[in-house]
Design a binder for these strands. Structure first.
Lengths: 170, 170
DNA sequence: CTTGGAATGTCAACAAGGCTGACTTAAACT
DNA sequence: AGTTTAAGTCAGCCTTGTTGACATTCCAAG
């Protein structure tokens, strides 16, 4: 299926970055980097009764205040039962507020409370700090490349979601 | 703590890639890309009684045949109870072989069987195919940047582990 | 106005895959 | 001989995902 060899090709284009060894290094880099990526928030959350799922919910509610449950479901890619369990605890603990929709009263619009914003800041400050250091150490060209490859790795569905979020940003 | 603004600075260096908005996009790109990254193997594994944990074990046993349990534990960053549950099923199902060490008989050296290699290929072919497409679409410079940022995101411990693996490769 | 379907929520049961703690066995080191 | 190390095992717990069934509310089309 693959001879693992790719040196130079048509037009003198260098495709050495497509050898199996290079691909494997990319795969392993993804594995280790994702661990680093989640390490800081995980540490903060382990002290509480929360986990990564709570972090994700909080992140995207903060990102798009007033978002509906259904919308959040599509972004997170989990079942409503799974999300509901997380949301229920966050609402009970007073970190998230759920307001009945005005135009469509079936919908619930989600907002962070003051306490919710406080936790969101703690979590994303930690994660941003790591990202900032990595970005600074790597430099602007590397960051551009990083983003290009990550976008190419997404499914088309997720990529659309990501683009929509990106455009809605500040 | 952070005013979220970073335009240009000393030496005319452009630090626009360090704004909070840029960092958030990086964070969200990581989130969505990791889902894409694991999607194909997950699909294959969901038909069997295996999960992502089995995939990881198989990957690294294939990467470093004869590795000890302790070594695998350090790479994966889980408890031995957690890993043992996975290894036991893989050994029972005849995908992994565990050989008593020759110099130190306390150690067990792990190898993939023929069936193990077959599954490993199915899984990594799918993952590599996605990575290859992403790399090809993004181009060599982007790939270099991708790797640079990912390495900068790792904890120093993980980074050492990653480097060791990288150097041991082909 | 009624009925079908959509959005949401809830209950129950289950599985994967993390974790801690306690304990055993065998081998190696001191 | 005694301690440490590598590995394995048992029991129990947690988070977070799943499916399936079902209730409620409400919009919208017939």
């Amino acid at each position: 299926m693959d001879d693992g060899r790719a040196t130079t090709t048509r037009g003198g284009e260098n495709l050495l970055f497509l050898t199996d060894e290079q691909l494997r290094q990319g795969i392993e880099a993804m594995f280790f980097a994702y661990r680093g990526f989640t390490a800081d928030p995980d540490r903060i959350l382990s002290d509480m009764a929360y986990g990564r799922a709570h972090h994700r919910a909080i992140h995207f509610i903060n990102r798009a205040p007033g978002t509906t449950v259904n919308n959040l479901l599509n972004i997170l890619g989990v079942t409503k039962q799974s999300l509901n369990r997380v949301l229920r605890t966050l609402i009970e603990d007073g970190l998230v507020e759920s307001r009945v929709g005005t135009s469509d009263k079936r919908e619930r619009h989600l907002f962070l409370t003051e306490d919710g914003h406080a936790l969101e800041s703690r979590l994303s400050d930690a994660q941003r700090a790591r990202m900032r250091t990595a970005f600074r150490d790597a430099g602007p060209e590397a960051v551009a490349g990083f983003r290009t490859v990550l976008e190419a790795m997404m499914d088309t569905e997720m990529h659309r979601t990501y683009q929509r979020l990106k455009e809605s940003g500040a």
